[in-house]
Design a protein around this nucleic acid. Structure first.
Length: 937
DNA sequence: GAGTTTGAAACT
DNA sequence: CAGTTTCAAACTC
């Protein structure tokens, strides 16, 4: 808020996308190299690498100044290329290592004040991981905690492998340095020496062994992280496995040697299946570390998780504070740590339940990425006002304001635009509005992406978040760079920015725009009475400041009036938490083709307007219709009359839904049958839609293109910060509704959270994760799960972030692990302690889809009490009570299932430390199912 | 460019 | 919650 320009500048969704894309692009190259990325890629046709990169990129990106400064995770300006650099450096330069050490130090220092030992340890992990990371800029590092994590995971894997093979003395040195830094404070004098002795990549581990019991927990986490990396390596690189095996051997050696605890390690290894050995070995180390072989790893993990939870809380708090100190590296670092911790937390939980399955590991890395993505999304979005935790990631991708859409369309097509935006953002810390404008202007310089033609728009929208980033990715990786001209424009305009537009005559501006949209498609307002402080104003509604092109009068939607804007925004959000959420959501239309008879039914794009239109006379054939304007088809959520939407008629949509339901894919035919009101909950469901104020959001990307959305989805994840977790999930194959809101509004019922609810929540998370990882489904499209539904409840959502803290969170995480990877971030289940998660089935039914498809059957079986709790939709009108998720027919999406199997494999290694939910057997059952599946595999 | 139409947002 | 009013964009001329 107070923060510097960046914070002030509103971030147009488009700009956000651009930034995201830029970040992504920057990071892309490195990620690809990482084993993690490889792993991901192996999993799905979609290149996760990019996703991972994206995430990193997000982290790294300096968040464009949002109109609504919110505590962004990424607020700090960072070198966008950091992620890439990091990845590259991971490859092994000593210099890099040393630098990373330095960075770590700086980070550590910065964190010291804020973070507890645990945090330090986290940092350690990060640091260790990041040994390979480029140190180029501490700021960068700090700026993108998530990236760091990602890089870390990737780097760590690589490093470990390399080191294990023959030790890179240099790497060892780097490790030592890191260790020194880390442990120096702890008085571990001899550790360094020992660490040096451990030349193999395990040096870190050995060091950890020395750590005190307190450190053990942290170490465990680290080990887990390493284990994850290892697991990733396994999955991704068989060759790497080889290295890992050697590494494991080393572990065995070390274990006994150092602490005499080696027994545990060796035993561990022996017991474990080959592929898992690596991971387990690490765990064994953890056990050994304390010298307490007896200490159950899980117990430690629990503690660690708790610590992490505390961390996460801290993080949230930081996040809140952050807005103010956005610029400070320390803060960013803290956030990063927090994020990391959150991820680790999840990881820990997962480890407990599943004992670090490879998938879990991947999930972890993914989680980080997701976090990054979420952060990115947040950046893109207008941001939450004060609470980072609450801030909802608005997935720039799928959930789009109409303005955003417009922008997106232009951007999406080429990715060039997105790049432009991103670069523009990079180049300038100017306000988002400026950025937007720049983008617009830039568009001229660039080859203008084809104007969004109706058909194309949808895809564009979808692509906005994801595709843009990816395209940027590719382009950047390819060496694509903005043209100097473009850069000039950006920079220059950035400089001028706000003032310009203020003084510009509206007429001139208007001329410029001809439409309300700039050439690029950025909308500009022409408000006269509302001061651009109401949702009538497209700029305001989009969370961006009015800019030059605007011809508004008496505009207060400017950086100068940031406070006013924020206050107004808050007020509006208080009325409707989703008021600022993107209007267009892309449903994850992942359903299996087989299910997809309806493929056509929907508009060219599966995207839908979250609330739907209410057209009476325009027949949805004019821009009066928001659906039409967004180039999306009408859906059940629409109350239009005489719909003739060329993108998809509501009727058709409904019919399709019904067909799908009848086909049995959807056990409940609620979609079509439902009263409109119920259907409309879509808004709530939209991940993107969550306003910053709103409880959280997560974000998923709504990509209009499934593929795109998939990509996006990865990128967008529930940010740890966001209290409300919106689960983005790929639309289950079964739900035909992909449309509007795939979002699921989870509303916690005031009653107790049933295990089922937890499971569901987990399942959602998992589903999302799965979708991302396996299906690559457009998370973007996923319906986001919003825990707090109604505005009144939105506040409750704030508590979501605490889910992790919530004792239940563990169960959730464990459950998640069982089911899939619960994203560490996912606060969902935790929603209010007492509340049950209710899946609102949005018109999209995305939630259902997710549940059905992604959810383990167990979860499905669990009957969720669908509490008719109405998620208050911002509109109030459209929120429908959640439907029973369990009822959804389980249509398995192939990919998802595969994902499940994957996870299952991981599970067996450890006894479930914490049953998901003791109360109900559903979780356990699900676990059993997983195990079975695994055994089958 | 002015005026009309339209539907969302805001208000009651 | 429904109905009405206000508003600004979209549209027409």
């Amino acid at each position: 808020m107070d923060s510097p320009k960046l914070s002030k500048s509103p971030i147009p969704s488009a700009s956000a996308f651009a930034s995201a894309s830029a970040s992504i692009s920057s990071s892309s190259s490195p990620v690809q190299e990482s084993p993690f990325s490889n792993y991901i890629s192996s999993l799905s046709p979609i290149k996760h690498d990019k996703a991972a990169h994206v995430a990193q990129g997000f982290v790294g990106l300096s968040s464009p100044p949002l109109v609504f400064t919110s505590p962004r995770i990424n607020t700090l300006g960072r070198p966008q290329s950091s992620s890439v650099e990091i990845s590259q450096k991971c490859e092994g330069d000593k210099k890099i290592i040393n630098e990373s050490c330095i960075l770590e130090r700086s980070v550590t220092e910065s964190q010291e004040g804020l973070v507890t030992d645990i945090k330090n340890e986290d940092n350690k992990d990060d640091v260790a991981v990041q040994l390979g990371s480029s140190s180029e800029c501490v700021d960068e590092y700090l700026a993108d905690p998530v990236e760091t994590d990602c890089a870390k995971s990737a780097c760590s894997v690589k490093l470990n492998l390399k080191q294990s093979n023959n030790v890179l003395q240099s790497s060892v040195d780097g490790l030592l340095d890191l260790k020194n830094i880390k442990f120096g404070s702890k008085n571990n004098v001899g550790r360094e020496v020992d660490a040096a002795q451990f030349l193999s990549g395990q040096s870190e581990e050995s060091i950890e062994r020395k750590l005190t019991s307190d450190e053990k927990l942290l170490k465990i986490e680290n080990e887990q992280g390493s284990a994850q990396g290892i697991s990733d390596g396994f999955q991704k690189f068989e060759s790497d496995r080889f290295d890992l095996s050697s590494k494991e051997k080393e572990c065995k050696k070390f274990g006994p040697q150092k602490d005499g605890r080696g027994d545990g390690c060796s035993n561990f290894l022996q017991q474990l299946p080959g592929s898992l050995l690596g991971v387990q070995s690490y765990e064994g180390f953890a056990k050994n570390i304390g010298g307490d072989a007896d200490v159950p790893v899980h117990s430690m993990t629990h503690e660690a998780s708790e610590l992490q939870r505390s961390m996460s809380r801290r993080c949230l708090q930081f996040g809140e504070a952050q807005p103010e100190a956005t610029a400070t590296c320390s803060i960013s670092t803290n956030r990063a740590n927090n994020i990391i911790s959150s991820t680790t937390l999840a990881t820990n939980s997962e480890t407990e339940s599943l004992s670090s399955s490879h998938l879990d590991l991947s999930a972890k890395s993914r989680t980080r990425q997701l976090v990054n993505l979420s952060q990115l999304a947040m950046n893109m979005i207008p941001q939450c006002y004060g609470n980072s935790s609450l801030t909802v990631l608005k997935p720039s991708g799928i959930g789009l304001h109409l303005n955003s859409i417009v922008n997106a369309t232009s951007m999406g097509q080429g990715g060039t635009a997105s790049m432009k935006l991103a670069q523009a953002i990079k180049s300038t810390s100017t306000t988002s509005c400026q950025t937007t404008e720049n983008i617009d202007n830039c568009s001229d310089a660039f080859e203008k992406v084809s104007t969004p033609q109706e058909g194309a728009l949808e895809q564009k929208v979808c692509t906005i978040a994801g595709s843009a980033s990816e395209s940027l990715f590719a382009e950047e990786s390819a060496g694509f760079h903005m043209t100097p001209n473009t850069k000039r424009k950006f920079s220059s305009e950035d400089g001028d920015g706000n003032d310009m537009f203020d003084q510009q005559s509206p007429i001139k501006k208007r001329k410029k725009l001809s439409n309300s949209t700039d050439g690029d498609g950025c909308k500009r307002c022409n408000c006269k009475k509302t001061k651009c402080l109401k949702l009538y104003c497209d700029c305001f509604a989009a969370g961006i400041y009015c800019a030059e092109p605007c011809s508004c009068q008496g505009c207060f939607n400017r950086p100068e009036y940031e406070e006013t804007v924020l206050e107004t925004r808050k007020q509006i959000e208080s009325r409707n938490p989703l008021a600022f959420a993107p209007k267009i959501v892309q449903p994850v239309t992942e359903f299996p083709l087989s299910n997809r008879e309806d493929g056509n039914r929907k508009t060219p794009s599966s995207a839908r307007h979250k609330r739907g239109c209410n057209c009476k006379r325009s027949m949805c054939l004019k821009k009066y219709c928001e659906c039409f304007q967004a180039n999306v088809g009408c859906s059940i959520g629409c109350r239009c009359e005489g719909c003739k939407n060329v993108y998809g008629k509501k009727k058709d949509y409904c019919v399709t839904e019904e067909m799908v339901n009848r086909s049995g894919e959807i056990s409940e035919s609620r979609v079509a049958a439902k009263p409109k009101k119920e259907i409309f909950h879509s808004e709530l469901c939209d991940p993107y839609h969550l306003t910053p104020l709103t409880p959280s959001v997560q974000c998923s990307d709504h990509g209009k293109n499934a593929s795109i959305s998939r990509l996006l989805s990865r990128r967008c994840l529930p940010s740890p910060e966001s209290e409300l977790t919106v689960l983005s999930y790929a639309k289950s194959p079964r739900s035909p509704r992909t449309s509007d809101s795939n979002d699921i509004l989870l509303e916690t019922s005031k009653g107790n959270l049933d295990i089922d609810s937890f499971c569901e929540g987990i399942s959602y998370n998992n589903a999302v994760t799965l979708a991302d990882e396996f299906h690559h489904t457009p998370l973007p499209n996923h319906p986001s799960v919003i825990i707090g539904s109604s505005s009144s409840k939105a506040r409750e959502l704030t508590s979501l972030s605490r889910v992790q803290l919530d004792p239940r969170s563990r169960s959730l995480t464990s459950g998640g692990s069982l089911h899939w990877h619960s994203s560490p971030i996912m606060p969902m289940s935790p929603l209010n302690d007492n509340k049950k998660l209710q899946g609102l089935d949005s018109a999209d039914g995305g939630l259902y889809d997710i549940l059905e498809d992604d959810m383990p059957e167990i979860l499905k079986d669990t009957s969720m009490p669908i509490k008719p709790v109405k998620a208050g939709s911002p509109n109030g009108k459209r929120v429908s009570p959640p439907h029973n998720l369990h009822q959804l027919g389980s249509s398995s999406s192939g990919p998802l299932r595969s994902g499940r199997k994957f996870i299952l494999k991981a599970v067996p290694s450890f006894p479930p430390l914490t049953p998901c939910i003791d109360a109900k057997g559903s979780c356990n059952q699900s676990r059993n199912n997983f195990q079975e599946n695994r055994s089958n595999d």
